[in-house]
């Protein structure tokens, strides 16, 4: 599903954010990406989401070499990648339903199918009944669940999460991890960036550890 081949990402001001990184993630696999702040976790996710392109090396996702993907195909690639953020990135003036529906609206889904899928996604994250609620009235954990529902509503084969439990207490963090495991069980490939070692160590999944932009440890598939 994901293949990094000697990938380097260099920023003019900050220098190398990733250095000669190589790894593979199989389809349907769930893995954690860990490391201290500034280790390169977010940069790696940004390369997969095609928010940025590598300076050197190849990033191949779903058989596509992202470095050579034409700009007009970027939206299609992003529709196959669900993204979850630490700060949820919800639109405060839109209801929960409208926030979750965004990927389907962007992909021009028909009204009935859109309704069905949004309700199914909200059901998946136990937020059915909160469709008409504005995100600002929800707790942080609920907002993150809305973010997860939005990431999976179009049923992408790959979901990326950048510090999804960063703002949550341990109990809510475990609840969110439970949601990820449910997605993993239905075949979604998940790559989750987190520096919460306590949370990660409790879970039986592969962990990639970054330091200074380099991959220093890969536990392999457990």
């Amino acid at each position: 599903m994901i293949r990094f081949e000697h990938v380097t990402k260099r920023y003019p001001q900050r220098g190398n954010a990733l250095r000669n990184l190589s790894f593979e993630l199989a389809a349907g696999e769930m893995a954690f990406l860990t490391g201290h702040s500034g280790a390169g976790k977010s940069t790696l996710l940004r390369l997969i989401g095609l928010i940025e392109r590598p300076s050197r090396g190849q990033v191949v996702v779903n058989g596509r070499n992202l470095g050579r993907l034409p700009a007009r195909k970027i939206p299609l690639h992003r529709r196959e990648v669900g993204m979850i953020f630490q700060d949820h990135r919800l639109l405060p003036d839109r209801t929960v339903f409208d926030n979750v529906a965004l990927p389907l609206v962007a992909a021009s889904y028909g009204h009935k199918e859109l309704q069905r899928r949004v309700r199914a996604a909200l059901d998946q994250v136990n937020l059915l009944g909160k469709e008409r609620t504005l995100p600002i009235t929800l707790s942080s954990g609920e907002q993150q669940r809305v973010g997860i529902a939005r990431a999976v509503v179009a049923r992408p084969p790959l979901v990326l999460a950048d510090e999804p439990t960063g703002n949550l207490d341990p109990e809510l963090s475990r609840e969110i991890m439970g949601l990820f495991e449910r997605l993993h069980r239905v075949g979604v490939t998940l790559l989750i960036a987190s520096h919460d070692q306590a949370l990660i160590s409790d879970l039986p999944y592969r962990t990639l550890t970054l330091a200074g932009g380099a991959l220093i440890k890969d536990t392999g598939t457990r």
């Binding site: 989401g49 928010i51 939206p75 992003r78 990135r89 965004l102 992909a107 939005r150």
Partner: peptide, 10 residues
């Protein structure tokens, strides 16, 4: 930005 991230075309 969010629309771009969820795959909206230009």
């Amino acid at each position: 930005e969010i629309m771009e991230l969820v795959g909206a075309t230009p």
